[in-house]
Computed example of a mutant assay.
Amino acid sequence: MKKFKIYAYAFLGVILLAVVCLLPLPVYLESVGKAINVADYVTVKGRTDESKGKLMLTYVSLQKATPILYVTSFLDKYTSRVPASEISGGETNAEFDKVQSYYMTDAVNQAKAISLKLAHKKYKRVYLGIYVMSILKNSTFKGKLKVGDTIVAVNNRHFDSTEGFMKYVKAQKKGSPIEITYLRDGKQKKANGKTVTLIGTNRSGIGISLAEKTKVKSPTKIRANMEGIGGPSAGLMLSLQMYSQVANVDLKAGRNIAGTGTISSNGKVGDIGGIDKKVVAASRAGATVFFAPNNPVSKAEKKADPTALSNYDEAKETVEKDNLKIKVIPVKNINEAISYLRNK
C-alpha cells in the first residue's frame, strides 16, 4: 500500500510537471531575437556579396507560453506577454504562417522593385491576382476559399489590378451569384457563392480581406531565399542589400549595419512592431548603426495610447535607457538610408 502511494504521488508529480512545462497558454512571449546578415540570403545574377561588413535584418523571437515560461518571462525586461488573439487575429497556426509568408514574399518583391528602380535597371511588375488573407464569418465562401488562395478571376472576368476587381464586385447587388476562379497549391479551382453586405457598410462584397499578389520580372536576376523568416519588416534591409549588389555600390564600408522597416515600391519605409527588441538584437550582434522608421504617431494611435512613440523615438529611448553602443538613424524612405551610408 505504501509503495502504491509513492507511485501515485510520483505519477501525479510527473503529470503536474508536464502541465507546468508543456501546457500551452493563450499567450505569446515576444522577446529579443537575432540580427542576421542579409547577404547570406540574397544573390544577384548568381553571385553572392562577399564584401566586408554586414547589412543585417532584425527580428523578434515569438513563442507560445507555458505556465513555467510565463512566470520566468518576468525575469527578462525585454520580454512582452501578448494575448494570442492579438498575434494571430483568431487564425489557425497554418493560416497565420501563410499570412506571414505572404508578407515576406511581398517584402522581397517590393525590395526588388525599388532596388532595380534606384539602380536604373529594367523591370516590370506582373499582376498575379488577389491573395486571400482572411474570410469573414458572413461570407458565402467560408469553407470554400482558404487563406493563401489566389483569386485570378470573378465570373470569368480577369483583372490587371486589385482596384478593378474591387470595383467590379462592389457594383454587384447583394445576393448576386459569384463564381471565383482561384489557385491553390498550383492547381486552378472554382467556387460559387453570393455577394453579401460587408459588415459595418452598405456595400456589397464577397466577404474576404485581401492583398495584391504581384511578381517582379527583370533581366537582372535577383533571388532571395527567406525560408523560415516571415513578416514584412525586413523590407528596408533587403532593399539596401539588393541595391548594393545590383548597382555594385559598397554601402557597408566594412561596417555592421542593422535596421528594420517595411518598404514600398516607391521607397517609403513603414513602421513595424517590437522595435525595442530589434535594436537590442542589433546591438548584441555588433551593429554600430540601426535604421528606424521615422513616421509620426497618428492621432488615432495617440488617442488609443497617449504614451505611444514613433518607431524612431522608441528605439532611441531603448538605446539611451540601456546605454547601448549603437547609433539610431531615423529614415522615412530608402534614399535617406542610402545617403547616410554614402556620406558617412
Rank of each mutant, 00 (worst) to 15 (best):
N156E: 07
Y78P: 00
K54F: 02
S101W: 12
K217F: 02
L183H: 02
G186L: 11
A224L: 07
I130N: 00
E212Y: 03
L17I: 09
A253N: 10
A111H: 03
G143E: 13
G164Y: 08
S115N: 10
L23P: 00
K117P: 03
S88L: 00
S310T: 13
S310Y: 06
V154C: 04
G274A: 06
L251Q: 04
N37Y: 08
A337H: 00
A337K: 00
R47H: 09
S298L: 14
K325W: 02
V331L: 11
V279W: 08
Y168T: 05
P306E: 01
G228S: 09
S80E: 13
K34N: 08
K252G: 05
A304G: 14
M1N: 05
F4V: 13
D305V: 01
V169I: 14
A35I: 13
G274V: 05
N155L: 10
K187M: 09
I130K: 00
T318Q: 09
R203K: 03
L236G: 00
L198V: 10
D106V: 05
D40I: 04
F159V: 10
V38I: 13
A10L: 15
D97L: 02
Y340D: 13
L240I: 10
T105M: 11
N156D: 10
R284W: 06
K302P: 14
V216I: 15
N335Q: 12
K190D: 02
P219H: 13
D49M: 11
R47V: 04
L238A: 12
K215E: 15
N266W: 05
N156C: 08
K3R: 15
V82P: 02
N295D: 14
N294T: 14
I229T: 09
E336F: 05
S115H: 05
S244Y: 03
G200W: 02
S264C: 09
V82K: 02
N295S: 14
P296V: 15
V152I: 15
K98L: 04
T262I: 13
K321V: 02
A35C: 10
L183D: 01
V82W: 04
V60Q: 07
G90A: 01
T150Q: 03
V328C: 08
G175D: 01
I334R: 00
Y312N: 03
G270S: 11
A287L: 08
A153F: 12
K327F: 04
V147C: 04
I36G: 01
N248Q: 11
E317F: 02
A35K: 15
K277C: 04
D250C: 06
A8M: 09
K137E: 15
G207I: 01
G270R: 00
L118I: 07
S233H: 11
K52S: 12
S239K: 01
V60A: 10
V169M: 03
A107D: 13
G143C: 07
K77C: 01
E212V: 12
L198W: 02
S264E: 11
S176E: 01
F74Y: 14
L116I: 04
Y131K: 09
K173P: 15
K124M: 08
T48I: 09
L198K: 01
I208P: 04
N93Y: 06
S233Q: 13
R342A: 08
K144C: 08
A258R: 06
I329F: 04
S209T: 11
L29I: 11
K112P: 03
V42Y: 02
V328N: 03
I68Y: 06
A315K: 06
G186P: 07
L116P: 12
K327S: 14
